[in-house]
Simulated assay, not measured.
Amino acid sequence: MTADRILGALDFLREAEKLKCTLRSGFTSDGRPESTAEHTWRLCLMALVFADEFEGIDHLRFIKLCIVHDLGEALSGDIPAVMQTEGSGKSAQERADLEVLTRALHPEKRAEILTLWEEYEAAQTPEAVLAKGLDKLETILQHNQGKNPADFDYAFNLGYGQRQTSAHPLLAQIRTILDEETRARADQARR
């Protein structure tokens, strides 16, 4: 690897560090706001843990999709799911931010990351469908595990990501368990 490629990669990694500071609407189990980097880490861990149950997929590509799926949020931040609307421009903004974020990378690596992100967004490959489903499940898992404010809207989770989480039998099984947990958390919050 040339010195220029190393320097470009380091510049990119420095910019990507912003994901550690990009906060989401979820909370950790100790009540601290969760970062996008933390969400991405656990999504990748979920992909690793459940990968053997997904036959006929490219496991490395699956993990790569999970790694890059929210990378564009490093610049403009996260828009909580409850605030997302059809045609909000979220996807276009993330794509534009990803182009800026990856500008220091070697063109081949930049193209790979952009292509992976586009594959995730389109959700037309088996790997992307599974990554999207696990992404929704990780969010619900965190909402159920987090120390949330008293007015947290657990009911939102019961409808969140239904299409993505029904795309594979294992995703649906996990969803059933998490929905039960969501209902229990909602009941507990009402007391």
Rank of each mutant, 00 (worst) to 15 (best):
L141C: 08
L137I: 04
A128I: 12
D151W: 07
H143L: 14
R190A: 14
W117P: 05
Y154R: 05
Q145T: 13
Q124N: 14
I113T: 11
P107M: 12
R175Y: 05
R95Q: 11
L134N: 04
E119K: 07
L105R: 09
K136I: 08
T176R: 13
G133F: 01
L178A: 04
L171A: 00
T125D: 10
E180C: 05
A189V: 02
F156D: 00
A128R: 11
A167F: 04
L170E: 04
G159K: 00
D179Y: 01
K132W: 07
D153E: 14
A167T: 09
A167Q: 15
D135W: 08
T125W: 12
A184N: 04
L134H: 00
S166H: 15
D153Y: 04
R95D: 03
G133T: 10
R163W: 09
A186M: 04
R175S: 10
Q145R: 14
R95L: 13
A122F: 07
E119G: 05
D153C: 10
W117R: 05
E118F: 04
K136S: 05
R191V: 11
I113W: 11
E112A: 13
A184R: 09
K136E: 06
L101C: 10
E181C: 05
D187Y: 05
F156M: 05
I113L: 15
D179I: 03
W117C: 00
E180L: 01
H143Y: 15
A131W: 00
L114H: 08
D97Q: 11
R103C: 14
R103W: 07
A111Q: 12
R103E: 14
A123I: 03
I174D: 03
R110W: 06
Y120M: 06
N148L: 09
A123S: 15
G159Y: 01
